[in-house]
Design a protein around this nucleic acid. Structure first.
Lengths: 133, 133
DNA sequence: ACAAGTATGCACCTTTTGGTAAGTACGAGA
DNA sequence: TCTCGTACTTACCAAAAGGTGCATACTTGT
């Protein structure tokens, strides 16, 4: 089933063999409250900062910018600054980033399929503690 | 944190379309430093606490237990306590959990494929600051 | 007898993360 | 002129997340 390739270590001297696979590496990139959302949204194409910010509701400027920078530093997206008068910048997935974003799709689908269940769960959980109305 | 996103739905099935898809829902479940690793590892079958702990190197008892509990509460895995003398417990994916774990596979693959690149990146990043001799 | 392993619980503390509110330089519309 | 919108930056803070170390009740190996 799941091929358990272990201990092939190309010439691994640095980099502890984190886990059983590359999940660790991926997680290092996508951990950050909004990163997966950012990546996934960028699948739609180049997006201006403002659009992104409006799309990802509830994210603050500081954090959005910050995560964009990190993602850029990680080589999964690129920032494009048209040096125009009212600032104009957009963000695009790099090829690497694109494949990463695509790898998020199953998660997205899972979420969609199980959304009802999850909502019920969260509803109960949240409704607990106030007036059980 | 103020998590008012799903907060409507008096008795409706309609979710505030958090984003473009169910990614949000999924993220709520798998966010936690070790959760994806736990889920992915459990694809191999029922696993005792100790095994898990040894497999996921660097996780502390407190956090591992805690995340296992949350995952259980979220219905993606189940804890099985054989009430034996030296404690014996194992964890299994529920059907829902199994599909979730499977959805992680593309991420894992991405990580594996891009591991070299990422390692180089992280190496540079970490090696920066000490001896540049 | 004593240490080790088993699966946790708990108190305490540090690190990491994210959020708020303010400010910047500039141009366009009212 | 006043204000809005653009894409950020910075200082300061609150909260969450994670880590450490100790304790438990019992058994097995030395």
């Amino acid at each position: 089933m799941s091929d358990t390739r272990h201990a092939d270590a190309p010439s691994a001297t640095l980099a502890a063999p984190a886990f059983t696979c590359g999940l660790d590496a991926t997680l290092k990139i996508i951990s950050g409250k909004w990163k997966p959302l950012i990546l996934y949204f960028l699948l739609r194409g180049p997006t201006r900062y403002g659009e992104l910010k409006r799309a990802i509701r509830d994210v603050s400027d500081k954090v959005l910018i910050q995560q964009l920078k990190e993602l850029e530093a990680d080589g999964v997206l690129s920032r494009n600054d048209y040096n125009e008068v009212p600032p104009r910048v957009d963000y695009t997935l790099t090829p690497t980033g694109q494949s990463l974003a695509q790898a998020l799709e199953p998660l997205c689908q899972w979420g969609t399929q199980n959304m009802a269940e999850m909502q019920k769960l969260f509803a109960e959980r949240d409704g607990w503690g106030r007036a059980r109305a």
